[in-house]
Structures are given as structure tokens and as C-alpha cells.
Amino acid sequence: MVTDVQNLSQPREGSFSPLARVVRSPLSVIGLLLVGLHLFFALFAPLMAPYSISAILTDGLTPPSDLHWLGTDQIGRDYMSRLMAGGRVALLVSLTGVSVALVVGTTLGIVAGYLGGLGHLGRMVDDLIMRLTDAMMAVPELLLIAILVLTFGKEIWSLSLIVAIVYTPGAVRVIRSRTISIAAFDFIRAAELRGEKTGFILMREITPNLRGLMAVEFAMRCSSAVLKISALSFLGLGISQPTPDWGLMVQEAMTVVFTDPWFVILPAIALSSLIIGINFAVDGLARAYGVVGAETAA
């Protein structure tokens, strides 16, 4: 796989803080607000939900009422309580999993990218890491997640671990590629000539310049992970009853879509609004940090 090293943007130490630039774009603000809202529900749904997610309260599908603001589902469970909690697992799993993936991926990526330019041994380490990421990325994400679910199970911690494993190689690639570009800059050469230790250069010179890319990466992988986790439950391989999950809720409600479309539309909107929120935020972040589309998409 060919690595394109050209056309990198100058690392910025600009006058505006990048966050300030994010906030100036209306789309990014909408995105961040949506994400914030979802995070709020994910964290506090159990406290705010009017009913338990599994309690059977009516004799089946009922329309909205004073007692149940969004009605009850096909077996009489409060729909609002379930909808509020429906993104919880996917979002929490994605956030923790992708964080881990990014920490591990950044470490490996910097090591591979920087050492790869320093002599024969470094080149070998770089090659090894890169071929391994190639191999892992050759197995389609959803398939890799699915087989790891076989191994680790579908508890929250195991799903987080799985997301961490699956999203590490992508992070390695992107970070490595940017590291190579940064390493070519004069201020790194200068540090090397000053006789700084490799550790210092990695931590103090290179890492700070990766912050923007890492932020964008984090958001992008999160949106991908949320989609994959909900696809997993849609396929019946992920979160199982009675835990609510938007993917599963869409799947179940498809059976009554022609008479009760809301039961499909609401979880679909909830899921899409989360992904749209993240992606809007990604766009804003990418622009603010001057991250090129082609770089993050790879």
C-alpha cells in the first residue's frame, strides 16, 4: 500500500486556538450540540427514564399518552425509556474503545513513522507494524468485530476491547503517515542536531503536532464504531434483549412499519442524529486543524 507523503499542511501553532475556530462554524456547533445531547442521555438515561426498560406495563402497542409520552412498544414496555437508553451501549463502547485504540495507535504510529526514517532496524520495526496493520485491515471491520464477539462475548467491557482492537490499525496508519511528514520538518532536524533524546523528540516535538489529527480521528472512528455496533445488533450478533439498542429497535419495529411507522422512525432518527452530529463535528474539527480529507479517510 502506497503512502503519500506529499502535500502536508504546515503544523500550526496559530494564534486562534483550534477550538475557537470549531465554534465559529455553525455546522460544527450543531454537531457538537447533538453529540453533547446524546452523551447526556447515554450517561443519565437510567436516572431520568420514567420507567424501567424491561417492565411490561400495558397490553402491547399503545399510542402516546399522559403516562407514556411515546407510547409503549409491542410488548407493552415504555417506549421513551427504551429510546433514551437505546444509544447508551453503542456510544459508551465506542468512546472507550476508540480512546484506547487511539492511544495505542498513536504510540505505534509515531514509533513506526519516526523510527522508520532512522536506520535499518527502525525500518524493520516500521515494516513489521505496517504489514500487521495491513493484514488486520484486510479483514473487513464488521467481520473482525463479529469474530471477536465470538471470542470475548458481548458484555460492555468486551465490546469496548473489541472496538479498541479493531480500530487500532487505522489509527496507526494515519498517525504514522503524518509523523513521517512532520519528521521531515526543520524543527525536528534541529532537535536532532541539538542532540535531543528520541523520547523527547517523540513526546515534545512530534506529539503536540498530532493533536488536531487525533481529534478528527477520534470523532471519525467513533461514528464508524457506533454504526458497526448497531449493525451488529441489527444482525442479532450484538446487544440482546431486553437491553434496548436502536439497531435492534429498528429491526423489531420493521414488522409494524406500515401501521406504526414511528416505532421505526424514532430509533432511526436517534441513531442517525448521533452519527450526523459526530460527522458535522468532524468536519469542523478537520477544518479548524487543517486536516486534509484524504488523510483522515485513509
Partner: peptide
């Protein structure tokens, strides 16, 4: 495309 990128594929297919 940003929108289609944000729609879960099982929703699009349905």
C-alpha cells in the same frame, strides 16, 4: 454524501 455516510446501511436498505 455526508448524510448518506451518516445513515446506517440497514436503515437505507429498508
Amino acid at each position: 454524501t455526508l448524510f448518506s455516510y451518516s445513515m446506517p446501511d440497514f436503515v437505507v436498505a429498508n
